[in-house]
Simulated assay, not measured.
Amino acid sequence: MPQRYISRLRLTSFRNYASAALDLAPRHVVLTGENGAGKTNLIEAVSLLSPGRGLRRAPFDTLALSGSDGNWAVAASIETEYGPVDIGTGAAGDAGSRRVRINGTNASSVTQMSEYLRLLWLTPAMDGLFSGPASERRRFFDRLVTTLIPGHGAAVADFETAMRQRNRLLDENGDPAWMSAIEAQMAEYASAVHFARTDSLTHLQALMASSVADTGFPEALLDLSPLLEDAEPKTASELEGELALRWRASRALDRAAGRTTLGPHRVDFSVTHRQKGMPAGLCSTGEQKALLIGLVLIHARLVKEMTGIAPFLLLDEIAAHLDPKRRAALFDALDKLDTQCWMTGTDPVLFADLGARAQHFAVASGQLHQTG
């Protein structure tokens, strides 16, 4: 039985759910139904119990049920080894924002939810991750890092906000002193982002190289492209100083390019199939999906080891393209994580081997019916 699990989930005016209620046991959760029934909407609601905009990255003012007053809400009871915790999030007064409440009290920040639960997810949109643009791989890796270091996502967002300010100033030929102040702020955020990424990668690589890494899925070699090609400052203050100097020196180049050409927003995350020695982008679609699943399973173990909190996994349409052997390996690996995993699919047969290890729900037109 997992130490932490979601025992109750309530949705109000969320996506295609006018209201929904699930009372759950400490087992996996399987949601099956036709496309468009609301399976992904439900696990998207769960994903909002973490920092960020959830697994679809949708603006908060687009989440409400069509025709409603816009006041969507998601509430969950989390059973922990210290007792139950009630967490809720929903539309705030300001358009495009949300509020978070924990045990009936307004949270100081969205990252406060991470004290009670961590979340990782895989969706079909990630299937082309390794052959797609670097920005998508970077966003995926930053999501992994945020599950381990909850403040990382905010640091990435703060850097990007400051960078946009610098780009506007460059375009407007703004005040150099103001530019220097923004560049110093960018350097502080960039340093935090860089060291969170590299530290997380180091721990993840070490765990992958250990015997614990036997998940039944291909092993991966991971890498991040250098932030600075010709130097690697060892401390945060050294990196901040170096970045500020380089941004000052590159103002003319960046003005001509219309963007900031150096920084953590240019870093790429790469994955190589260890056994084949082949970049993931050149592997078959099935191998890429297997690599992605193996990576998320190992990262879940890392989060549990380093934080003491086994992350909940949200796996959308996870079994559709896995053969029986790989499905069995996935279900066994999920059991070993000692966590509650939420899975969706169109065919209940794909999850039959889970048996009593999961609670099964049929989803149809925003309605839920327990089937096992």
Rank of each mutant, 00 (worst) to 15 (best):
M278E: 08
L42Q: 09
A319W: 05
L222I: 13
D69P: 04
A352D: 15
V296F: 04
F361N: 04
L302Q: 06
T146Y: 08
L170P: 09
R139I: 12
F361T: 13
A45M: 07
F217G: 04
Q205G: 04
L292R: 03
A252R: 00
D332G: 00
T111N: 06
N106Q: 11
A249Y: 00
A356Q: 14
M179I: 10
G263I: 08
G36N: 09
T161D: 13
L239M: 14
E242G: 03
N167R: 10
A58S: 15
A209Q: 10
S50K: 01
W342F: 15
V363S: 07
A320K: 10
T147A: 14
A244W: 09
A364V: 11
R53W: 05
A95I: 09
S108G: 14
G308I: 02
L350M: 13
G345V: 11
A75M: 03
A190Q: 09
A25W: 00
N173C: 06
R168Q: 09
A25N: 00
G174N: 03
A45H: 05
T285L: 05
F130S: 00
G128F: 01
R10E: 14
R266W: 06
P311N: 02
G90F: 11
G104N: 06
A319I: 11
S114D: 00
T215G: 01
S180N: 06
G294L: 01
V100K: 00
A231N: 14
D69L: 06
D214R: 15
T346A: 15
R53H: 09
E115H: 04
N106P: 06
M163T: 13
G286P: 12
C341N: 15
T62L: 13
L292V: 07
G241Y: 04
E232I: 00
R139T: 15
K276C: 03
L48M: 09
